[in-house]
């Protein structure tokens, strides 16, 4: 039997060489490095984090909240007292913005994360069982894609959903409805991806070793689609934020007294001329939010895609060295 504790000098030297030479780089380090190489993506991440922090702690910086009406300043443009001005009702816009951004980010994150989770479970199940189960589940999926989401949202949040509306805040209702209609595309993608993973040699090897199928799915399939899921989360978040804004804008999403970016934009559209700050401030914030996510997405794709060509240029580095 080999003595496991024996130290082989050659091995140690080899080990040292590998450490020093930077030959072996952890995957996470490569991903981080590739992400950081994309300056746009880093900027996007910074903006997104800043907005998130703002939406949670921004309230402390201002004495006003979204309920308090300032009777002396109604419909006033930005001033020292009200940083972003006040609404037609005399509510501080800054306070409204903090609240609205938070709701919008919340909706985006929850819908983005949960829909990808649903998609992963649904897609993996389809691929794993195959056959009849796959066909039926695929049919349900296709049926959901065919359904006009707009109508359902309209019905659920206004006329038909009275019972629901009494028990749930409107943002929660919107999250649920958005969730129902947001996971199908990803699920189909994950299904096809896991199906091709099932054909990979390492899955076959596990099968030939007699490993039960359930364990194969859990240990081999799910971790291997992880990077795709990360990408899909950011895409889902953007989609959900935009959907919230759109639905609220046409008046079927978030309902007053709840505030969101969409609600704010909607309220201001009719009086862009008279209260321009009421329109432009939420619009810019929304744009920053979705824009930062889009910027990040590109960097994440670069970072996670194994076939990515993001290795930088030899010329640049050579030039630096020559200097």
């Amino acid at each position: 039997m080999t003595n496991l504790n024996a130290i082989d000098p050659a091995a140690v030297a080899e080990e040292a060489r590998i450490e020093n030479d930077d030959v072996v780089i952890a995957k996470s380090a490569i991903i981080l490095r590739r992400f950081l190489r994309n300056k746009t993506a880093v900027a996007g991440l910074v903006i997104f984090l800043a907005l998130t922090v703002f939406s949670f702690v921004g309230g402390i910086l201002s004495p006003w909240d979204k309920e308090t009406i300032d009777p002396f300043n109604i419909g006033m443009p930005p001033s020292g007292e009200h940083l972003l001005g006040t609404s037609q009702a005399g509510i501080d816009l800054y306070a409204l913005m903090v609240e609205g951004t938070r709701i919008s980010i919340l909706i985006g994150l929850v819908v983005g994360l949960v829909s990808v989770l649903i998609a992963a479970v649904y897609g993996c199940t389809m691929a794993y069982f195959g056959g009849k189960v796959d066909k039926v589940m695929l049919f349900i999926l296709e049926a959901l894609i065919m359904m006009p989401a707009l109508l359902v949202v309209a019905v659920a949040t206004s006329g038909g959903g009275n019972g629901l509306r009494e028990n749930l805040p409107s943002w929660l209702l919107l999250i649920i409805v958005l969730l129902v209609f947001s996971w199908m595309g990803t699920a189909r993608l994950i299904r096809s991806l896991s199906m091709s993973l099932m054909q990979r040699d390492f899955v076959k090897a596990a099968q030939y070793m007699g490993i039960p199928a359930r364990r194969i799915v859990w240990r081999h399939l799910v971790p291997n689609i992880g990077s795709l899921l990360v990408l899909d989360v950011t895409r889902g978040v953007t989609g959900a934020i935009l959907a919230e804004v759109a639905f609220s804008f046409i008046g079927i999403g978030i309902k007053v007294p709840d505030v969101s970016l969409g609600v704010l934009i909607n309220q201001a559209t009719s009086q862009v001329q008279t209260f321009p700050w009421m329109f432009w401030v939420p619009l810019v914030v929304m744009f920053l939010l979705t824009g930062s996510l889009a910027m990040m997405n590109d960097g994440l794709r670069d970072a996670f895609d194994p076939s990515s060509s993001s290795v930088g240029s030899a010329k640049k580095t050579a030039g630096k060295r020559n200097k």
């Binding site: 040699d201 076959k204 090897a205 070793m209 291997n224």
Partner: peptide, 18 residues
């Protein structure tokens, strides 16, 4: 199954990268 095991053509594809 115990009597029979397999070595695959593509050594990279046959090992789970994770």
């Amino acid at each position: 199954r115990k009597e029979l095991q397999m070595v695959f053509q593509d050594p990279t594809g046959a090992l789970d990268p994770r």
